[in-house]
């Protein structure tokens, strides 16, 4: 989107950014719906058997939380870099962000495998169902985010973004922070409560 187009919008916010915000509002409702379903049954169903914390692998999940938060920070740094027009530094930080996401996914895969072996499966009981549904949907979002990041990286290296025009980096960043935020909510309600 050209600068001219941004100046033209009534709100002064570019279409892409406003669109991203609107999209995220609907995402909040999607996760909000699922999380409230979980909270309602967690507090209301007599048959929600919560596995002991030791079985949940809290340290690993904490590490994962850390990885994801770090990747959010590197995303901020990447945005700052492109705002200064430093494509090299931008690419490096985006690379770190992608790395953080990948670590998250790998650890998650290991966790899934481990839990499944331990008998916590999608249909074993209500907790398992919620665990895999909530984190699974989140994993899908992380994966989507990684694809987005790859695209941003390639486009950035091809010189598509300038200090004046980098809307898509900002949108991708917003999305990535959102995905991070969802995890920060899922982590305590699934692992710690």
């Amino acid at each position: 989107m050209s600068t001219a187009a941004i100046a033209e919008t009534n709100t002064g916010i570019s279409n892409a950014k406003l669109g991203t915000w609107t999209f995220l509002a609907s995402e909040i409702m999607l996760f909000g719906g699922l999380i409230s379903a979980y909270v309602i049954l967690r507090s209301g169903s007599a048959h929600m058997v919560v596995p002991p914390r030791s079985m949940m692998g809290v340290p690993l999940a904490t590490f994962n939380t850390f990885a994801l938060i770090t990747s959010s920070v590197t995303m901020v740094l990447a945005l700052a870099a492109i705002q200064e027009g430093n494509v090299q530094r931008f690419a490096r930080w985006i690379g770190c962000t992608i790395g953080g996401g990948l670590i998250f996914l790998i650890v998650k895969a290991y966790e899934y495998h481990h839990k499944w072996e331990e008998g916590i499966t999608l249909s074993s009981n209500l907790f398992g169902s919620f665990y895999y549904t909530l984190t699974g949907l989140h994993v899908l979002h992380v994966t989507g985010g990684l694809v987005l990041m790859l695209y941003i990286l390639v486009a950035g290296l091809r010189g598509r973004f300038t200090p004046a025009s980098h809307d898509r980096v900002e949108s991708a960043g917003l999305y990535w922070h959102f995905v991070d935020l969802v995890w920060v909510i899922l982590f305590p309600i699934l692992y710690l409560l």
């Binding site: 509002a25 719906g33 209500l126 549904t133």
Partner: peptide
């Protein structure tokens, strides 16, 4: 924008109940 995602969540759970034998 705000109401439909909640049905999407509900439909997802029902779909899992049907195909993945969960019991939401």
């Amino acid at each position: 924008l705000l109401a439909f995602p909640v049905l999407e969540a509900g439909a997802l759970l029902q779909l899992l109940d049907r195909v993945a034998h969960t019991s939401f």
